[in-house]
Design a protein around this nucleic acid. Sequence first.
DNA 1: CTGAAAGCGCTTACAG
DNA 2: CTGAAAGCGCTTACAG
Lengths: 341, 341
Amino acid sequence: MKDSRITLKDLAQVLNLSPSTISRALADHPAISEATKEKVQKKAEELGFIPNSIASSFRKKKSHTLGVIVPRIDIHFHSLVISGIEEFAYKTGYNVTIFQSKDSITREKEITKLLQNKMVEGVIVCLATETYNYDHFKKFRKLGVPLVFYDRVPSNYDTNKIVINDFESAFKATEHLIKKGCTRIAHIAGNQSTPIFKARLQGYKSAIKKHHGNLDEKLIIPCKTLSYEEGALCAEKFLKFSPMPDGIFCANDYTAVSVIQVFRKAGIKIPEDTAVVGFSNYPISRVIEPHLTTINDRAFQMGIEAAKLLIRLIEEEKKSIKSETITLETELIIRESSMKP
Amino acid sequence: MKDSRITLKDLAQVLNLSPSTISRALADHPAISEATKEKVQKKAEELGFIPNSIASSFRKKKSHTLGVIVPRIDIHFHSLVISGIEEFAYKTGYNVTIFQSKDSITREKEITKLLQNKMVEGVIVCLATETYNYDHFKKFRKLGVPLVFYDRVPSNYDTNKIVINDFESAFKATEHLIKKGCTRIAHIAGNQSTPIFKARLQGYKSAIKKHHGNLDEKLIIPCKTLSYEEGALCAEKFLKFSPMPDGIFCANDYTAVSVIQVFRKAGIKIPEDTAVVGFSNYPISRVIEPHLTTINDRAFQMGIEAAKLLIRLIEEEKKSIKSETITLETELIIRESSMKP
DNA sequence: CTGAAAGCGCTTACAG
DNA sequence: CTGAAAGCGCTTACAG
């Protein structure tokens, strides 16, 4: 940032006007005559005047910046959310500054401190897996900086949230398998200390109980990270069951893909012998063969809604005290992996 | 940003010291006595003093912010690069503000204008596909704001670049197929107006000529976007060749995956009948069966290097006039899709 | 080792 | 419709 920049004062001098007038003219203030506005705008253009937005932010106490904290940017779900946030923020004139917590609560705390003096006007957060205490977010409220959480949101903490209905989505997915004629439906469950995976398990259970009456707990295999590798381990276990499950609802797409591959190698036909449903609609779900039936988790839309809500909270006159939770409708995308004949 | 914030002046009053001293004490200035420093730091902590970093940025004319322009955040390659940028920037105390050009030159131009008055200290860019004129970046040089381009970089424009050696990578990939015994190697080529795809084609040609002497131009199929769908179309074409190619080097992983799937459906064995190599090492490459041999394009490292170079340029005393190009070494990751017996 | 003063480049309430 | 003045919250060269 060399000092070759022209300032309002320079412009004022050249035009024999006061800096106040220049400032107003460029801001299209109604009190300024059209003639002056034109003159000023023309000169500003001519001299390549670039307003110093830091000075303006400083003076107006508005940074027009949103802070975003995600566990990792390179996870497709989060990159979609960020894309949605950027899209809405850009259209509304806000900048987006991103931080990765790397799923470390220590780093998450560091970042919240940073953001507090960075004077961001609002913050969007997906919590680190390690985070079960939310004290480091309390300061934002005191500072009048609104927060919106998405996906991994605080429990027992009154705040703004954007979520999908995990319970109903899981219910819908499981019910789909039931309607396709599956009678022995297994579930690969996520970490039960994470609310979304707990809700997915509940949705599964609820659908089974409603249609089949009783539930075989042995058909539920809990996972820690729901990785591709963990999925393979689950699949191996299922192969030893007798009778084998004829339907599997997986809490994410990675494990679903893994199950499909291990089963096929073992000679099990998908979906004829065992139907498989995933969760998230990752790109891989329409590449794996057979293509995977899954839940569209609306990641991009989540980003849009998070930014929209946050900016509304920022711009609202009296910062509303009531917290909002927006629940997005998901969609079951039916593909070959569950298309039993 | 409510006005409940405590300022340096407030602290000064409480402690009966001047704001200058407070400022210095908090900045750990050597001229301040340890006793005073401690007193100030303690009180600052106690009153929950948060320095206003916008005021500081304004005063010091240092925003400590990097601007990043990518075509889309939700493309895995870019999300990896951004992740690398954030990682390095975070450690060095810089913030990262991201923008998506959506591959539109109009939007790219808008963003450069925005960034000019946002007072970012440096900018990292991957050009929009539409961009063949770089005038909108010239202003940054005048302002003393360094630029670093990555992946899709300007041609015939003197600037800082982070790239991989596409020619050699393609050469290496093709040579690998040759060494595996392939004698009729095809290439799915990318858009030839994009330098990286041009270089990949050249690398392919060069390897073929070196080892096989002559080149059969019919074995080169040009694509526009190298999408999964386009890959399938190419595969269909290959199936009609006689004799069929016994090796295919694809300019990206999407088309490679597509080829594998179409070929397998047609009863062609991979790698026995036809070996396939991709480019990029996308996550899908280690999921597709058989796992895909591909080039690791070092996306994360690219982000690290881009940030490192940019921050060096920002912090260098005399902004160096010479432009730098950093070429990262790629790596051929050999997996099953090319493991001919 | 500490302080008084000036100033970064804007914006805005007040005055005319 | 335009201007003079104050000030946002820091930092820093200068003085002591």
